[in-house]
Design a protein around this nucleic acid. Structure first.
Length: 469
RNA sequence: GUCCCCAUCGUCUAGAGGCCUAGGACACCUCCCUUUCACGGAGGCGACCGGGGUUCGAAUCCCCGUGGGGACGCCA
């Protein structure tokens, strides 16, 4: 059978990390089996769905490179189909009208809770052979409920969690269409998964309890039952549940924070899934390896440190010319506009990135750490006081003179510094550190001769002169 | 409360009865490299939730307990 998976977010917010992983796994499963990955927007909650959220989800998917073969389908555009199925179920007697008011239902729930019972609909409008139903009140618009079987168990083999069995006694007759006629989530999912021919439903763990209801409806419709794989949730760095209020951020925030999509993808792939000891792999490799058997059934805690480590790896691995496109934008946010300064013979961005990309964990760090090449250094006072001492200034002065005559290559620059070091009977760092502070503004940088070579002779001499005075 | 699910280093995980004196990765610590800080390299610290079974043998299977999570909407 051809594999068909789907990602079915509701557009009530951005694409967060948990949703992204669900999408990634569904996507990879389809790719692995040369199947189709479908995007379906579940927007039947009109009050909470927004076009902005739809766009945010689409943006997130695009940033991650999770392309879909079909869709996006919008459930609100499939109303006719749902209504037809609803009508059919009403006629076949697998669904019925319920005239309970919300207040009535609320009272029922409360009394059940007080008796330590599981709150559920008591079936007062459920038609039964020989049962006399109440007279429909004229002022109530009815909802439609699914007539769930009352005996037996629903059992399925979850591809992640193994066999799960739930007694029909635990289930009540859920509302499948609201009083205003719009169908609800559990019903739309069933119709769509069925009609879109979904073979594996890969989704969050919070849907486990919906699964038996959906399976019952699928049976009632005579539909094929897909396989289910329920992914456990992702916890925040602090081990707490992620929510709008606490820690849940858009995947686009990772872009904002300087993470490469490759790193986020690789990280997410390893969160809850594994392939032996493999830690670093690209998506082609992931799709080749991916299987549902090696998904962990327990919840996973997000670890930003590990993401940072992966991000550093991917930054190192990315060609500087490619990095440059992104870094220009980040520099612009720091008010450094390269198109204006390159003309003034500042170093080529690619060369600077070659020197710095080995040392950072995020693109933002990369951008800010090279800023001094394109603007006057911002001095770290502690470093200045420690290294730019008055006793070293004459040495630097002498060095400036010597440097004027040097051919501007790292090895020649190095030689000039070395000479100054010996002539003044100093250790190399004693000269290198003040130079570093004078040129970069702080006490950390790559090899100082490399930095000077890139900075250029004019800038180097000017900055040393500034620092001395 | 009821139902469902989960449980290996601080974190992500390997582990399908003997290969486990439990392996890898992040983080942490030490050392090396060194022109500072990183990077890199080499080591180190560090875990099978508890109790009962089953078995010649259990991290792995079963039961109970404990802890954690999820669901119980005219939300998805």
């Amino acid at each position: 059978m051809i594999v068909r998976t789907r990602f079915a977010p509701s557009p009530t917010g951005f694409l967060h990390i948990g949703g992204a992983r669900t999408a990634l796994f569904s996507w990879a499963y389809a790719k692995k089996h040369q199947g189709a990955f479908i995007l379906r927007i579940e927007d039947t909650d009109v009050a909470r769905s927004t076009p902005e959220a739809v766009q945010a989800i689409l943006d997130g998917m695009q940033w991650l490179g999770l392309d879909y073969d079909e869709g996006p389908f919008y459930q609100m555009q499939r109303m006719d189909r749902y209504k037809a199925v609803l009508k059919q179920m009403l006629e076949e007697g697998t669904a019925y009208y319920c005239y309970c008011s919300k207040e009535e239902l609320e009272a029922l729930r409360e009394s059940q809770m007080q008796q330590n019972l599981k709150p559920r609909y008591d079936g007062r409008w459920r038609p039964e052979a020989g049962k006399v139903l109440p007279t429909p009140p004229a002022d109530i618009q009815p909802v439609i409920r699914f007539k769930n079987p009352q005996t037996g168990n629903v059992v399925w083999h979850d591809l992640v969690k193994g066999e799960i069995s739930i007694a029909n006694q635990e289930l009540d007759d859920l509302v499948i269409a609201r009083a205003d006629g719009t169908p609800t989530y559990n019903f739309c999912v069933v119709v769509d998964d069925w009609e879109m021919g979904i073979t594996q439903v890969i989704r969050g763990d919070d849907h486990v309890n919906n699964t038996p209801r959906q399976i019952n409806m699928l049976y009632a419709l005579g539909a094929t039952i897909p396989q289910y794989a329920h992914l456990s949730m992702i916890l925040g760095d602090d081990g707490q549940k992620l929510s709008k209020r606490h820690g849940a951020v858009s995947v686009m925030q990772y872009d904002e924070d300087g993470y490469l999509p490759e790193a986020v993808l690789n990280y997410l792939a390893r969160l809850g899934w594994s392939h032996g000891d493999e830690e670093i792999f690209d998506m082609a490799q992931f799709c080749a390896w991916f299987d549902l058997d090696h998904i962990t059934p327990s919840a996973a805690q997000f670890n930003t440190e590990k993401l940072r480590w992966l991000n550093a790896h991917y930054i190192k691995q990315t060609d500087s010319a490619v990095l440059a496109i992104d870094i220009k934008k980040r520099l612009a946010k720091l008010n450094i506009h390269l198109q204006d300064i390159l003309a003034q013979q500042f170093p080529q961005l690619n060369a600077v990135l070659d020197l710095y990309k080995e040392r950072v964990h995020t693109l933002n760090e990369l951008a800010s750490s090279i800023a001094y090449f394109y603007q006057p250094p911002v001095f770290d006072q502690t470093a200045v006081e420690k290294h730019l001492t008055s006793d070293i200034k004459p040495v630097l002065n002498g060095l400036v003179e010597a440097l004027k005559e040097v051919e501007w290559q790292p090895e020649h620059i190095h030689q000039a510094i070395e000479t100054a070091v010996t002539q003044n009977q100093l250790k190399f760092p004693k000269v290198a550190m003040p130079l570093r502070v004078a040129l970069t503004g702080n006490a950390q940088s790559p090899s100082i001769d490399q930095v000077m070579a890139l900075l250029g002779k004019d800038q180097t001499l000017a900055r040393i002169a500034d620092a001395i005075n």
